[in-house]
């Protein structure tokens, strides 16, 4: 593979985003209310609770990578359901709406009237996107960039754009496939399920390792 090739000449522009949280006015004290909340909150709220914990600013226990799982264990003391929700699928081609439906189905199985120690408060967010001022055209530049850009930039291109429905697959795979015809590598990257991460650098490392294995 010629790492200095520019492929079809399509550049990749790096952006990153902040996700400032907002109050949704929806709370849940038990599973029934949690289900109702999941059914009606906007997609950015599901995104926030399921995927935002990858970022280092959003702390959850390492074994429970999303807010719902954490609340089920910490407040409702339902260890079994917490483990099930912790392992919910978040990879491609799932969108937020797919994940919402799966959450509803899985939680319906653990239906109890038990009240949590404290409520689950649904948070949404209003993404603020900013450019990194970095544009790459070759695989060499791309590899360097993936290793060096802020993790929230990788999160934006790999997770946010896809799960929110603005891109069918993650944007890294898109570019590798469209610009270089690297279908197999794109598909391998697409198999990474971001929902399983609670550490943005581990998430980056797995992507870097995969790129390195295939390209170097």
């Amino acid at each position: 593979m010629n790492l200095d090739s520019k492929g079809k000449g399509i550049p990749f522009k790096f952006y990153a985003a902040y996700y400032p949280p907002t109050y949704t006015r929806i709370k849940a004290n038990n599973i029934k209310e949690l289900l109702e909340g999941i059914s009606k909150v906007d997609k950015l709220s599901i995104f926030y609770h399921i995927f935002h914990p990858i970022l280092s600013s959003h702390v959850v226990p390492e074994d429970l990578p999303n807010d719902f799982a954490f609340w089920l264990r910490d407040s409702l003391h339902d260890e079994d359901l917490a483990e099930i929700i912790a392992d919910i699928q978040g990879g491609e081609p799932l969108t937020i709406e797919d994940i919402r439906q799966e959450l509803i189905q899985l939680m319906a199985k653990g239906f109890t009237d038990r009240k949590g120690d404290y409520p689950f408060i649904f948070i949404s967010c209003k993404p603020v996107i900013y450019p990194l001022g970095l544009e790459v055209t070759t695989l060499s530049e791309f590899l360097d960039a993936i290793g060096n850009v802020p993790a929230r930039s990788i999160f934006y291109h790999f997770v946010y754009k896809r799960v929110i429905g603005e891109s069918k697959t993650n944007e890294l795979s898109n570019w590798l496939e469209e610009n270089f015809g690297l279908i197999e590598l794109g598909e391998k990257l697409s198999a990474i399920d971001p929902q399983t991460y609670t550490d943005e650098e581990k998430f980056r490392n797995d992507i870097v390792e995969m790129l390195e294995d295939e390209l170097l």
């Binding site: 952006y15 902040y18 400032p20 209003k126 603020v128 996107i129 450019p131």
Partner: peptide, 20 residues
């Protein structure tokens, strides 16, 4: 401070860069 500025971008409808 950044979060205050983000809120200001929201109320002025500038949460996205112009090119996007």
């Amino acid at each position: 401070m950044t979060q205050y500025m983000e809120t200001m971008l929201y109320v002025t409808e500038r949460t996205m860069p112009e090119e996007l």
